[in-house]
Design a binder for these strands. Structure first.
Lengths: 169, 169, 169, 169
DNA sequence: TTTT
DNA sequence: TTTT
């Protein structure tokens, strides 16, 4: 479809230390639970009320995973930019289920720490596979590994998010 | 939570004519299925590949619902700005299920038609209920105190930002 | 022009205490200098380098101006969402000059404090002029059904936040 | 500065065929004039009013420049995502002048054609230099130039950041 | 002029 | 499960 945009921007707090899994071929995948909330004042009672929304953020980008692994902890405030993605899975009864996640993968995905933790500042961007042993922060916008091993054999390719071991929600 | 942002930006195509429901008290709610897609070339085979993502967009804002009702049809290309929201429901087996939607409601929600249909252009924004009989397009963004003396006599009007005392830079 | 979007999103630090001016009719206008920066590592030398960009943020929205006046100080970290606007002015030689600013005015403009200062959290949105003496935060984007029993029994329904009568903060 | 974001999102129409310049070492730079507009109804007179804002978009990214060169014409509708950048220059009187532009360069920059022109759809992303013969649309998210020499000597004017040889952080 |  |  010509001219499509799928972008999610969140600023929120991390609900628990991120989980880092690995695919069979060793690529890391980080899961972050991120809370955003709104507060308002009840029109009648005048009380302050709050609604919190929980987001599942899944980081496929290797470079960003390293950042997550090293710096992102429970309570951290993050700015993230990713994409909406709904994946289908089967529950134990064999029924189709769907989970929608905010995916940080490839182009245009970003994760920035907003509370001053992290090495030197804490902005990191997802520049493709980021493969090949990039240090945290290297190379963003900066294309470029001469070799980008896995991610399943192809660029941003075979996209269907081939997690070897999908985890529902 | 201090300092939270929950924003989704989509540009995509409408998969079917929107459904408009009404609450018991008569407020409209529109459901739109919106497709975004990405294409890339497989690194190995060189083939072009495509992945389409389907989003459920739920419009609570009355003014935006009117726009949807009148102008948004299957195939339309839309720019939308809303929020992520996951709601819990029970399936027929009484099991908890979750659905994540892109909600256009209240502040900061926008829907813009990108293919030239719609009245006069097709930008609309969700400024609250849009109550009080605002027509589509009226006064959007337009501040609009009950009386707005200066700023040139009207709303966001004569916009050239006539600061009485402009300060350069 | 049908279907137009003009949006700027910045997260940065305030360079100096904001200046608040007033128009002849008493409406406040706040000016904020906001710094964003990028760091990268020099490809050759390996040194860390940094580039800072300074933005002029102009807040026309009355409600947001109050927030700025009370809470935004030099050094604060802000999330802002506004619009690009270039205005023309004459310098002392009578030559045309142009200045581009990030304007927070009317619909879709937001300012959020990210470092935990400010009353109760510090998110505020620009809903028009905030005319009529709104307190900080009143009435932004407020859904605000006069009564909203169901919200439709399904769909995006049974929403945990049914604001029968709430105005968001 | 830890945690900084500088992002501009525009959907608008191209005012004239883009200009493509080249740096001394042959890299292309495209300039696009993009119009966004807002319409509203005057609260008093009830007349429809419109304000158009013109943006200068400067594309440094080689891959995106190719897209611009081939597909972007006067009248095209574009979605662009870039960064705000103000550069300093001297006018003929030797006075300092500043111009603010929306720069598409490196990470997170995107240009998407929204009116169905362009090869196969028209989404393109700025993944670094995109050098090395990537076709339009290839391999997005998957950067990877074999070499990216200068980026010096021109730019959108004597640009204060000429990274002759830097990779962003 | 901020921040790290 | 975060945060204020």
């Amino acid at each position: 479809m010509a001219g499509s945009v799928n972008k999610v921007i969140l600023v929120g707090n991390v609900g628990a230390d991120p989980e880092i899994r690995r695919t069979q071929d060793g690529r890391p995948i980080a899961n972050i639970r991120l809370a955003t909330s709104e507060t308002w004042r009840d029109r009648n009672s005048g009380e302050r009320r709050e609604k919190t929304e929980w987001h599942t953020v899944v980081v496929f980008n290797e470079g960003l995973c390293k950042v997550v692994e090293q710096y992102v902890k429970k309570g951290a405030k993050l700015y993230i930019e990713g994409q909406l993605q709904t994946r289908k899975w089967q529950d134990q009864q064999g029924q189709d289920r769907y989970s929608t996640e905010v995916v940080l993968q490839g182009f245009g995905s970003t994760l920035t720490m907003l509370d001053g933790r992290g090495e030197g500042g804490g902005a990191s961007r997802g520049s493709g596979t980021g493969a090949g042993g990039n240090d945290y922060g290297d190379d963003y916008g900066a294309p470029a590994p001469s070799s980008s091993p896995s991610r399943g054999g192809g660029g941003a390719g075979n996209f269907s998010r081939d997690l070897d071991d999908d985890i529902p929600f």
